[in-house]
């Protein structure tokens, strides 16, 4: 049954991200045991599964944090090797990591631009002087665009609340992503209203043609925006459902390892 699903998917054109047979081991632990995955332009895939199922690991293979031990990844139909976070970003893939991946002592603005800072004009820029006012201006705009108001983008990230940090991480990824947005539990520390804001951001990015993967335990929320639900279990794909026709029962039984029917 699963095989037919995957064959169905393979017929679909315009996969912006495609992975075949991804295997990732950590010593004796096999975190991913041959995962096939596909994401289209303008598609939102909810990636769900029990703790330790391999969701974060899969996303990190796409982000260049981990390198898969086996398997192939294509971006826009081109086979790529993603050896580092830098390369992943070069391909237009941006990630909101589960731990948000902010540098606590660094200002919000500098966090947004970390690794791709704006230099000053002229000689000073050439020798590495940064244009902090410009970065602050743009970071402020990026963060406003996700509907959040911070008192200042010059304060260190550690002085933000959990929700504000999440907003900064999301604003950063959204601002830089051109093809794929990967979100690992982006609503984990958010209240109801902020979760709505994040869902709106995802919808807006989808409308801009971005392919989006959302890891979430909040099934009801994520089903509001997902086109497809992929279930991981013990490092393998245990379910692949169209969101419009899926029931909670389907997802839960796939997560728990019961036989599932398409």
């Amino acid at each position: 049954m699963m095989e037919t699903d995957i064959r169905e998917l393979e017929k679909v054109q315009n996969a912006v991200l495609k992975a075949k047979n991804i295997v990732k081991r950590f010593g004796h632990v096999q975190a991913l045991g041959g995962v096939d995955f596909e994401l289209k332009r303008g598609e939102v895939v909810a990636l769900v599964g029990d703790n330790g199922a391999g969701k974060s690991t899969l996303i990190k293979c796409f982000s260049g944090v981990y390198q898969a031990d086996e398997g192939e990844i294509e971006i826009d139909g081109v086979p790529v090797k993603i050896n580092s976070p830098m390369e992943s970003r070069y391909y237009g893939v941006e990630t909101v990591f589960q731990d948000l991946s902010l540098a606590p002592d660094v200002s919000v603005a500098a966090n947004v631009f970390l690794g791709r800072e704006i230099e000053r004009h002229g000689i000073l820029g050439k020798i590495g002087f940064l244009d902090y006012p410009e970065m602050q201006k743009r970071a402020d705009k990026f963060i406003r665009e996700v509907g959040v108001n911070l008192p200042s983008v010059e304060i260190p990230a550690e002085s933000l609340s959990g929700g504000q940090r999440q907003a900064v991480a999301i604003a950063r990824a959204r601002a830089w992503a051109s093809k794929v947005l990967l979100l690992d539990e982006p609503t984990a520390s958010l209240g109801v209203r902020q979760t709505e804001i994040v869902l709106d951001i995802i919808k807006a990015s989808k409308d801009r043609g971005m392919g989006i993967v959302v890891i979430s335990h909040d099934l009801p929320s994520v089903l509001k925006i997902a086109d497809r639900v992929v279930v991981l279990r013990l490092g393998k794909v245990a379910g692949n459902f169209q969101a419009e026709s899926v029931t909670y029962a389907d997802v839960v039984s796939a997560m728990l390892g019961k036989e599932f029917k398409a």
């Binding site: 982000s63 944090v65 580092s84 976070p85 830098m86 970003r89 990630t95 990591f97 991946s101 902010l102 540098a103 606590p104 002592d105 660094v106 500098a110 970390l114 690794g115 791709r116 800072e117 940064l130």
Partner: peptide, 18 residues
């Protein structure tokens, strides 16, 4: 900035491409 970022959170710095 990179010096501060590396000391602040090495893994985040690495993921930011530093």
């Amino acid at each position: 900035l990179h010096t501060i970022a590396v000391g602040s959170n090495m893994e985040s710095a690495r993921r930011a491409g530093i």
